[in-house]
């Protein structure tokens, strides 16, 4: 029979999310969701631009930019986009809509729904104190799935014995 290791499940993972763009917030949630589905204790720590992913009024509008992103190709082709073109008005919205569509086709939920799903699975979400202050955020700005705003030292205590992924 499969080894589900209920008793030995002391693995802990911390994901540091430092970017608030659509692709990296998605990467964080895919990994986080996989971890928690394996019975791993999960903490996600949002810092710097990653805070966009937990600011309630912004989290439905995360974007991906084709600017300075040479690996971004039209799916199924080798065609990328020159920076001159990528910087034209509307290109970020275009790229974001395209990625959202591709993700939807793979049944990847939109960001807020994905966060809720991982939260419902038992994950802990934290905001970084220093960058929260620097960006002049208030408690009302945060999505209500965030447990608390914590300091770097708090994070060190929290992450003791954990594996850490920095995104």
């Amino acid at each position: 029979m499969p080894k589900f290791d209920d008793d030995g499940g002391d693995r802990k993972l911390c994901i540091i999310v430092s970017k608030g763009t659509m692709e990296w917030s998605t990467a964080a949630m895919v990994l986080g969701n996989a971890a928690i589905g394996e019975g791993i204790e999960l903490h996600v720590f949002f810092t710097f631009w990653g805070l966009d992913a937990i600011v309630d009024r912004r989290m439905d509008k995360l974007k991906i930019s084709p600017v300075a992103n040479p690996s971004m190709k039209i799916p199924g082709t080798d065609i990328g986009m020159a920076n001159m073109l990528a910087g034209l008005p509307g290109m970020t919205a275009f790229a974001s809509n395209m990625m959202a569509k591709e993700m939807k086709a793979l049944d990847v939920p939109p960001h807020r729904e994905f966060m809720q799903m991982v939260h419902d699975s038992g994950a802990h979400f934290w905001a970084c104190r220093l960058t929260y202050d620097m960006l002049k955020l208030t408690p009302e700005d945060l999505w209500d799935g965030v447990e608390d705003v914590i300091s770097a030292s708090d994070f060190m205590e929290l992450s003791e014995g954990a594996q850490i992924i920095f995104i």
Binding site: F4, D6, G9, G37, G39, M117, D120, S121, G122
Partner: peptide, 15 residues
């Protein structure tokens, strides 16, 4: 709901 799946099949619901 996701929460219920984790209650019904604790820790590793998918497996």
């Amino acid at each position: 709901p996701t929460k219920d799946l984790y209650k019904l099949f604790p820790k590793k619901p998918a497996k």
